[in-house]
């Protein structure tokens, strides 16, 4: 087992290196450099000043040298300072992770927690009114883009009805992460994050449950005289949940899953906005740090998933 893990981790190194090269190149081949973008339209800043800043930021060096610097920094888990904030990109990302994770995680829980039972109910009442109702609901959710749904929520729930705040993590002057004020502010983003799950899980679970229901072992269970509740929950639902678990394969990347759309609509200072702005402004250190950290977590998640498979399914051998 240890050898398996070690080998998988070693294999991850060239993958990460490839990701680094691609990220590095893609960022730099697009037109205009960060310094030019930073001071665009300001005629008081001379070309000399800009060149001095390029030098200060290390942008005047040849690309291969810049890449060596970048690799050497990344090995020491240092991604350099943001060009705009003049602070370590790593710190800026770490300080925003809690902001992002909170609504994403809650959204996932709501999505699964409500979506799975809905799918189960739909399967059980197949062909009846409840089933149709759930199907129409999921189709509507699935086909409404998040940004539109979000804006509708802000317009009706926040501005007109004042049920939820228009955005932000706390009211002005308040600063807490586990409190009623935060919970109130979380409502909108969590619902929006849950939207995907609410649209997806009912349909997935419905199909799975129906398929499991037609299996022989279910008939056997019923023939044995087991109570319907036990058949449904211990036998059917448990088996139907396997694809949900597979879906969690990249679970660790949840740390970086902040969506720029949700964060913009609800003015949430999370990672999505940080990376998006970094990309628009060509803040290389932020973008590079973000991509490499999330790729790393994805690779780790995959290793974990493989191990879990091996543990769960005796047919898969660890070698």
């Amino acid at each position: 087992m240890t050898r398996f893990i070690a080998r998988r981790l070693l294999q991850a190194i060239p993958t990460l290196f490839g990701i680094m090269i691609i990220t590095f190149i893609l960022l730099r081949v697009s037109p205009a450099d960060p310094v030019k973008l930073m001071v665009a339209g300001d005629q008081e800043i001379t070309e000399e000043d800009k060149n001095r800043l390029r030098e200060g930021l290390g942008l005047n060096k040849p690309l291969p040298l810049q890449f060596v610097d970048f690799t050497w920094q990344a090995i020491r888990l240092d991604f350099g300072n943001s060009f705009y904030y003049h602070r370590p990109a790593r710190d800026m990302i770490f300080e925003r992770i809690p902001n992002s994770v909170q609504p994403v995680l809650l959204g996932l829980l709501v999505g699964v927690g409500v979506g799975v039972p809905l799918g189960f109910v739909a399967a059980v009442s197949r062909g009846r009114r409840t089933d149709h109702g759930i199907r129409v609901g999921t189709v509507v959710l699935q086909s409404t883009p998040d940004f539109f749904l979000g804006l509708l929520m802000v317009l009706f729930l926040a501005i007109q009805l004042k049920w939820i705040p228009i955005g932000s993590m706390n009211v002005v002057g308040e600063d807490c992460t586990m409190c009623w004020d935060r919970a109130w502010h979380l409502l909108g983003p969590v619902l929006l994050y849950a939207n995907g799950g609410l649209a997806f899980y009912p349909r997935l679970i419905r199909t799975e449950v129906l398929e499991v229901l037609s299996q022989d072992f279910v008939r056997t269970a019923r023939a044995k005289g087991l109570r319907e509740r036990i058949v449904m929950f211990t036998h059917v639902l448990r088996n139907a949940l396997i694809p949900v678990v597979t879906n969690f394969g990249g679970i660790l990347t949840i740390v970086f899953a902040g969506s720029v759309i949700v964060e913009r609509v609800f003015n949430w200072p999370g990672l999505g906005r940080l990376f998006f702005d970094g990309l628009v402004n060509k803040d290389y250190p932020i973008v590079q740090a973000g991509i490499i950290m999330s790729s790393f977590l994805l690779l780790i998640s995959f290793v974990m998933r493989d191990i879990t498979y091996a543990l769960v399914d005796p047919r898969i051998k660890v070698r």
Binding site: V35, E44, I45, T46, D49, R52, E55, G56
Partner: peptide, 10 residues
């Protein structure tokens, strides 16, 4: 002394 300023020419 700053390496990150764009104001030196002032």
């Amino acid at each position: 002394r700053s390496a990150k300023t764009v104001r030196k020419s002032t």
